[in-house]
């Protein structure tokens, strides 16, 4: 197999664009959230400063190899997810490493970061990390169930596991989107979306006052900077999947920006105004509402 060097370059460029987009967008989202609660909120470039500040810390302590690898895995999850998903439909340049079975890989990557994080955070030996991981894994598992079912439903619907094909099937008008062709599956997927974006009411994993930040309690300096990078990258990568699967994908960067922002805002819309669920509450919620909708989606197909 020959290495397609330009493709790697384009992928790196994609990564760069998405990270910067994420930096600005998450800051903007925080500003919007602040506005809802009557504040001005952080400066739009605050994320960059925080990142540099963390990198610039002089002392860094480590708890072992896995502790060190944790954020790396986490970032790998985000990068991997993004790289195996076509960012811009119809553009060879921005399709990254999309291939025939990439939907399965993408689903795997959604989990990958979380697992890597779990290993790393566990090594830090902090009890709050352990609590956070337990909460996180149990909640993510349940929350992703509707997504899995929805993905199952649409792969049945489109008879493919290739994301590019799924996007292609949705082209030609807004009513070709899965949102309209299979609203039940979309709804099921949105349950999962809201549930895994680490926002209220499903953010008990990082409950800052209760189990200081949860899994990343012990993370700081460059480790934290890596995780911060992932934290702006990963949600967007995930949003890209949702965009591709249910909202017709994007054919250019402008459409990409608008759609990602809009889809992202769904979780924000819920998140900034709702209080936090406890773990068992959110599990019950997903089992009671998310799962039936997912099953219904499959049945309807």
């Amino acid at each position: 197999m020959s290495i397609d060097w330009p493709r790697i370059g384009y992928a790196a460029l994609t990564l760069f664009i998405v990270i910067n987009y994420g930096m600005i967008m998450t800051a903007l989202v925080r500003k919007i959230g602040a506005r809802v609660s009557g504040r001005y909120g952080i400066r739009i470039y605050q994320n960059y400063i925080d990142l540099v500040k963390n990198i610039a810390l002089r002392s860094k302590i480590t708890h072992g190899v896995m502790y060190y690898l944790g954020p790396v895995f986490r970032l790998t999850g985000g990068v991997g997810l993004l790289l195996f998903v076509p960012t811009i439909y119809g553009s060879a340049m921005w399709s990254n490493f999309s291939f025939a079975g990439d939907l399965v890989l993408a689903l795997y990557f959604v989990f990958f970061g979380t697992l890597g994080m779990a290993l790393g955070a566990a090594e830090s030996g902090h009890p709050y990390s352990a609590i956070g991981i337990t909460r996180g894994l149990s909640q993510v598992t349940v929350a992703e169930l509707p997504l899995a079912l929805a993905v199952f439903a649409i792969s049945l619907q489109y008879q493919t596991l290739n994301i590019t094909d799924i996007v292609a099937a949705q082209q030609g008008g807004i009513f070709n989107w899965t949102l309209f062709t299979n609203p039940v599956a979309t709804l099921a997927a949105l349950f999962a979306f809201v549930g895994t974006m680490m926002r209220s009411p499903f953010d008990v994993v990082i409950a800052p006052q209760e189990i200081p930040i949860g899994p990343p309690t012990e993370y700081h300096s460059s480790y934290l900077a890596l995780m911060q990078t992932n934290r702006v990258l990963f949600p967007i990568a995930k949003t890209v999947i949702y965009m591709n699967l249910f909202f017709g994908g994007a054919t250019n960067w402008f459409e990409f920006a608008i759609k990602v922002f809009a889809i992202y805002m769904i979780s924000v819309l819920v998140g900034v105004v709702h209080p936090r669920f406890r773990v068992e509450q959110s599990i019950t919620f997903f089992l009671k509402w998310g799962l039936p909708v997912g099953v219904l989606a499959i049945l309807l197909v």
Binding site: G38, R39, Y40
Partner: peptide
């Protein structure tokens, strides 16, 4: 009902 809080998004913040 919590969604009604979104009405503040365009208001001037209460911040001094």
């Amino acid at each position: 009902s919590p969604f009604t809080a979104w009405k503040h998004v365009l208001e001037t913040p209460v911040t001094i």
